[in-house]
Design a protein around this nucleic acid. Sequence first.
DNA 1: CTTCTACTACAAGAATTTGCATAAGCTGAT
DNA 2: ATCAGCTTATGCAAATTCTTGTAGTAGAAG
Lengths: 225, 225
Amino acid sequence: MQILVVEDDNRISNFLVKGLEECGYLVTLCKNAEDVLKQYINIEWDLIILDIMLADMDGVQLLQALRYKKVYTPILMLSALNSVQDKISALDYGADDYLTKPFHFDELISRIRALTRRRQYEQLETPKAELQFGQLHINREQYKVTWAGEPVELSPREYKLLIYLVENIGKTVSRVQMLNAVWGITFDNHTNVVDVYISYLRSKIEKQDEKYIFTVKGVGYMFKG
Amino acid sequence: MQILVVEDDNRISNFLVKGLEECGYLVTLCKNAEDVLKQYINIEWDLIILDIMLADMDGVQLLQALRYKKVYTPILMLSALNSVQDKISALDYGADDYLTKPFHFDELISRIRALTRRRQYEQLETPKAELQFGQLHINREQYKVTWAGEPVELSPREYKLLIYLVENIGKTVSRVQMLNAVWGITFDNHTNVVDVYISYLRSKIEKQDEKYIFTVKGVGYMFKG
DNA sequence: CTTCTACTACAAGAATTTGCATAAGCTGAT
DNA sequence: ATCAGCTTATGCAAATTCTTGTAGTAGAAG
């Protein structure tokens, strides 16, 4: 589940990113409206969280711009203002939900679930907390991975990468996509971290000839169940 | 699971009652606002579905009346209007969700699940006054914690944190969630109070190799019984 | 078949972060 | 002023992340 957070206040964005990541979401942070329209618009987000007060552009303007460019991703607006007028204009221009700061983090999570649940329903996808591929079990609620019953100790980054691969099961994902989704890096800075982490994952989850991660030369990797 | 449907249009109410009953809910139908306030107000519903257009009273008025009388049952508003103003006023006056006709029945179900799930979560506050995990006893009525009969002196904050962990037993809770739930709303994430208090708790309740609080690296903590 | 090149795999270690314990500072109530 | 409780700061060990560098491999070209 990939979420784009558009927020220029460092304090709040840190809090959001950290909290959402701790809840298992893959989060990318963008600090200004311009970059959203330039760099991030073509990525398929599951949800966009948009602050209504940005330095370079009004959040509602950005919302309008996105909808104008036919971006139909669910958008949750975030604002310090409690004015009804703001709520109205945000929802009128196509926001899917609206939350006023300060808010309870659990309420944010529950609203995110509501928004993305509807999306999943539309996509006719069934989200599962328990996944199994051969001997490999993944429990997403408990962040627990086991192989033939034995626990597999994965670092946070390794776990995130695994989840991303599993979410795109059967699809080839590129290094850039992975850098994007798992590392939050949107530019190529000539790193081979992805390769290294694929290697880590393989050594931990591929045992006794059970192979899950396949190399697609020149393109990326693919997870097969 | 008991649901009260307040709806005066026969076509719609039939559809709702039939559909909900087929999904396993116990449904009661009420055709006017007056009866809700007279007859049905004292029953403990799990959910109330309220049409915004009733013959004898505006749905939002009824909603207000219910909340005024301290009925905190989750309420889902139903309306043919897609006006943002209605949505806002409904939500402002204490509706928990809002659905516009015509709607997909599956979406209704999914929203019902969301609302009643949250309720179940909230109801975890009142289940058992006496809890026991190994040698650890927690009496929630007396705010008293003992280990092997010996009283454990916990400060208010420590106690609150313990209760929050216990309420989420078996689930990983993040630092941000704990900050939110135990310390109140804050965007501050440059603090390690949570770690410190986990440490305090451990030193007070984990004795003789009885371990309750487990670290989930990179994510948070989990209480196991 | 052999050679070449671009790509991939992975080991090793440096740099950074995290979790945890402890200490020190702060605050509000009595 | 004192004290309990709360928060911040600090140090350290261990874990994690990331870079570097080298060996290996697939597949195209000759």
